[in-house]
Design a protein around this nucleic acid. Structure first.
Lengths: 335, 335
DNA sequence: TTGTATGCGTTATCAT
DNA sequence: ATGATAACGCATACAA
């Protein structure tokens, strides 16, 4: 009978104790736990069985010291409080915990300096690999040639081992959706950075091919900036693509305040399909950024790198989640 | 001149190398890095200076092995993709990283079994302490008497070292707000678990003292359940307190669909003051749950425990963020 | 104040 | 197939 779960023995049985009771050397115990090693089947089973009754498991610390590796995967992200990053993190975690690994987390607050410090910190803790989300420092991050280093949507287009969304395609999807809704005078609400620029390019390219010129308004991913951008929009705009859902919330509010009905007079498409998209009025159509899947893909790539395989970069194709804001039918029941 | 940041030497200088070049023993180098130890001031400075030029820092791995501690703080939470938990995590991280510690993260998916496994995993990694958010397993979690073990809003009311919100007070705040808005026929939309029950108690107690009886509707924290609860509300209800913002979004939608104006006909107060509260129509008044601060408080408590101080439990007093949904004035400009 | 030596829990090398 | 033993990088008791 094992002890009740809330009473963990202060000092768990060590490898020596197991070796002694099993009548073998500690080397054999070690081998019994390492699948690659060569041990007689019977011996291995006996050791493992005994280890189970003594509730012995090899200490990660000792192993790390001699191997120079841990079972840790470093994760650097701007801010775990932001839902999108949280979802990426969850995807990473779900993927690696099956293999007994766990996440060593550091947030960078979008500061390249902090990012570099964080990377150094992780390296010193002998992480087997690391995943960096939205890296600003990019190619300047410290690396070990020996360590897996994966980037999710890095700002720098030059870093290797990347997992990202096809933002250009996302912009194109939004354009197609708005055109299907009869857009004649489209607008784009953007933000700084590579990603928003790519979304804009995909959008304007498709619009240009349809003979539409795009009005532009700057933002910075906040609702407040969306509100301002929405108010600054030319009065004849009849379709808006917004580079982020939070900004889209601001744009919707601005349009309402201006007395312009969505979607009957103006159609709107956001980006990210974040948690808030289905909660807005009207429910917001949005280009879906599968944050969880990005995390899963990044973790898989890191795992592959750790086991020594190359593994190609991943470019995830977005899809569009159609809701009320882009479908030109009678507006959702007015309150 | 230090090497460019992206080229970390594969093998950084070790303690021996520093000792050799400094002309001292490795013990002295070790002492130089440990503030408690007794080294001649001049010697320490010389060693530290040399270490800097060789970019040597003591390896956490070696230190962990001999001390049985790491610089790691374990964190177990249900799901890092949920914004509230993400905010707690960020508060923890910001607090501990000043001391050079970092977060070892495991998610439990609200499963007590996984929680226990996670706790064991953390213990094996020699975390100095752990913070468990919304623990289901509660007092049954494995512990070391030697390790700091802090709970944020545990389901179990018996676990020690807790940091939580005063949910009863939160419910009372909501009641006061709705009463101030002229509530005559209030309702409460609840959810399973201790926290929602406490919010309900605080709410109904104040309402009872004001001579109001409270209509009850069950939910489970999802928007969908809020929508259903909102539709099931008695027709004469004129004020609703909802135990979570996501459910409140559903309640608002249900009220709109039923043609009932918020806040002119019905006032609504949510709970959490999550990111979505200010984005809803009308902007949702909500009892603020300062998730980030909860994380900070928990981290401080863990830090104090680690350094051997007792530290009292923390009960954070919520406040109410008043927005449009609870203020009985003309409804926000109808679209 | 400093050096020597031991041990922390492993894995890896080299015997046997 | 297995055992003895040397690292791994550090902290510390003890000796000097």
């Amino acid at each position: 009978m094992s002890p009740p779960p809330h009473e963990v023995p202060a000092r768990t049985a060590g490898i020596r104790e197991v070796a002694r009771q099993a009548g073998v050397s500690i080397a054999t115990v070690s081998r019994a736990f390492n699948p690659g090693s060569t041990v007689q089947q019977e011996t291995r089973e006996r050791v493992l069985e005994l280890a189970r009754t003594l509730s012995y498991q090899p200490s990660p610390l000792g192993r790390n010291l001699v191997c120079g590796r841990s079972d840790l995967l470093g994760v650097i992200l701007p801010n775990s409080g932001f839902p999108l990053y949280g979802a990426v993190l969850q995807g990473i975690e779900d993927t690696i915990q099956a293999g007994g690994m766990s996440v060593l987390l550091v947030s960078s607050r979008d500061d390249p300096t902090v990012e570099v410090r964080a990377a150094t910190h992780l390296l010193r803790h002998a992480v087997d690999g690391s995943i960096v989300v939205n890296s600003r420092a990019g190619v300047n991050l410290p690396r070990h040639r020996d360590r897996a280093w994966v980037h999710v949507a890095p700002e720098d287009p030059a870093v290797p081992h990347r997992v990202e969304l096809d933002n250009v395609r996302g912009g194109a999807l939004a354009a197609a959706e708005l055109l299907a809704g009869g857009a004649r005078r489209p607008a784009f609400v953007g933000a700084p950075g590579r990603e928003a620029a790519e979304r804009q390019r995909g959008f304007t390219d498709v619009m240009a091919r349809a003979g539409r010129s795009v009005a532009l308004a700057p933002g910075n991913y906040t609702e407040e900036s969306g509100l301002r951008a929405g108010m600054a929009l030319p009065a004849d705009v009849d379709a808006v693509f917004v580079a982020g859902d939070l900004m889209a919330a601001g744009v919707l509010r601005a349009l309402h305040q201006a007395g312009r009905r969505v979607p009957s007079e103006v159609t709107v498409v956001g980006f990210d399909d974040s948690l808030i998209a289905p909660l807005l009025y009207p429910r917001l159509s949005s280009v879906r950024q599968p944050a969880y899947d990005l995390g899963v893909a990044a973790a898989r790539m890191a795992l592959a790198l750790i086991t020594g395989e190359p593994g190609p970069d991943v470019l995830i194709t977005p899809d569009l989640v159609r809701r009320e804001s882009s479908v030109r039918v009678p507006p959702p029941r007015p309150p």
